[in-house]
């Protein structure tokens, strides 16, 4: 496997999907063991995804959440009649 071929199969390897055969997985691992740049690229891609998954960068505004709940409750009542446990909250 060349660096170029590894690049094309990167998603399947990083995501651990079953699209790669056992033989392909082994070729991938074998290339990685002997190629530091490709090792770093794989690690960088994992790190990039991890950075985006962390935290909650866009918190839901409290004021909007309250308005949303009222609007949904109103629409629900129009469609199905009064929501029976709305007052629980």
């Amino acid at each position: 496997m060349t660096c170029e071929e590894l690049l094309q199969a990167l998603n399947e390897y990083v995501d651990g999907t079953l699209d790669l055969s056992a033989a392909e997985c082994q070729q991938f691992a074998q290339h990685l063991a002997g190629c530091n740049p490709c090792q770093l690229v794989v690690d960088n891609i994992r790190g990039t995804i991890q950075l985006f998954r962390a935290g909650e960068p866009f918190p839901l505004p409290v004021e909007f959440q309250q308005r949303l709940q009222l609007n949904l409750q109103q629409r629900w009542a129009e469609k199905f009649g009064v929501g029976e446990s709305a007052e629980v909250r």
Binding site: E56, F58, L60, P61, Q69, L72, F80, G83, E84, A86
Partner: peptide
């Protein structure tokens, strides 16, 4: 017709939906 069940779904997904919408539209 159980509003409480619907409300639980909203509670569960509103943050994700809002974050997704923010990231696609880039506008509060």
């Amino acid at each position: 017709g159980q509003f409480a069940a619907f409300q639980s779904l909203v509670d569960r997904y509103q943050r994700r939906v809002y974050g997704l919408a923010w990231r696609i539209t880039r506008h509060a």
